[in-house]
Design a protein around this nucleic acid. Structure first.
Lengths: 189, 189
DNA sequence: CGAAAATTTGACATGACTCAACTGGAGTGG
DNA sequence: CCACTCCAGTTGAGTCATGTCAAATTTTCG
């Protein structure tokens, strides 16, 4: 676990082993079984979760009761509700394990301490946040310029392993279409 | 100008007037007339732009030649191509002035120096990036759960002043629909 | 004033959704 | 080990939302 984190953080900023040790001591390992919730609507998101194994989804339920998946999180990604976490507001999003999932939870309180103790960590999380922003804008771009069929073909091509791990109706929700429509698309070749 | 920046940055982290002075000395004021480009496809984005006055749009041109507006930037927002800026890659996006616009340009080189000189700046830009991420995810949510008509009514209600400043075809592009369709929507009341 | 750009209009085509019914497989309890 | 249930996925008919294209009209700006 320490090794995985050391590798991960040194992609951004050089850290000493000792600093990663300190970081590790602030992390709490948690496991969630399939369908368990890391965060529910109305709760305040108090942690950032680093996924060491598994797969989670972040979604909201609209006023018609329909789920919309905003993003998925897989191994070596951080997942959190940034809005709820940074502004200490009740979440309107759910975060749920799609597979049995193991995460390292980093609480806001511990993170603030770590920022004071290890200044480069501020830089690392700035860069991580930038990457999340790039990913979100990319997703927006795809949705603007592709129709549903093109998006489906694109995701199958780019992330073939990922598509296997996710039920089809979740993929439909992520792509912003109905499960029926995705099913029909798949049939056309 | 120094005052505007002092106000702005102190919303995130406390800075001294002296630190903001140092920051200011690294900024270069630039003006762009309507339709001038801050960044073109293929160029590497070397600056973050803080908009002190005016309005810009970030868009891409797809393989059919159609423009898709990803986001707008107004007064007191930073605009850049995060992907091109952070990874030093050619941009696939354009940034263009919609109105005559004045910005303070902060180059990547100067920014790196400033990070070393004023450590809390790292924190401020982490928080600014978090805000940009929240905004991008919000936009994604709206597009997932609203149809075009709902999105239009929403944006008119939330940002009435903004709608006045932008030509209708740009609003249509931002909302991901054709200008003809937006025109038809507006007619229905 | 005149040209170019933006917006509107309408006919038509197509993509996507809704709803309801059906199929098939995975798990569960008897 | 079978029968049952539940859930995911498929299918098809009908409807609605949105796009396409071409033309007319209005607005903007030099």
């Amino acid at each position: 676990m320490i090794d995985q984190l050391y590798q991960y953080f040194n992609r951004y900023v050089p850290f000493s082993h000792q600093e990663i040790d300190v970081l590790c001591s602030c992390l709490e390992q948690k496991t969630y079984t399939r369908k368990a919730f890391l965060l529910k609507e109305g709760d305040i998101c108090k942690d950032k979760y680093f996924i060491t194994e598994g797969l989670v989804r972040t979604f909201r339920i609209d006023n018609k009761g329909i789920e919309h998946i905003l993003l998925f999180g897989i191994e070596n990604w951080w997942v959190t509700n940034t809005e709820s976490f940074t502004r200490v507001q009740p979440s309107h999003l759910y975060i749920q394990a799609v597979e049995n999932t193991t995460v390292l939870a980093l609480s806001k309180r511990k993170l603030e301490q770590l920022y004071a103790q290890i200044p480069q960590l501020e830089r690392a999380f700035r860069m991580i946040t930038e990457n999340m922003l790039v990913a979100a804008l990319r997703h927006l771009e795809f949705r603007q310029q592709m129709n549903n069929e093109e998006m489906y073909r694109h995701i199958v091509q780019e992330l073939p392993g990922f598509v296997q791990r996710v039920p089809q109706y979740m993929l439909a929700s992520y792509l912003g279409m109905t499960p029926e429509h995705l099913s029909a698309l798949r049939k056309n070749k």
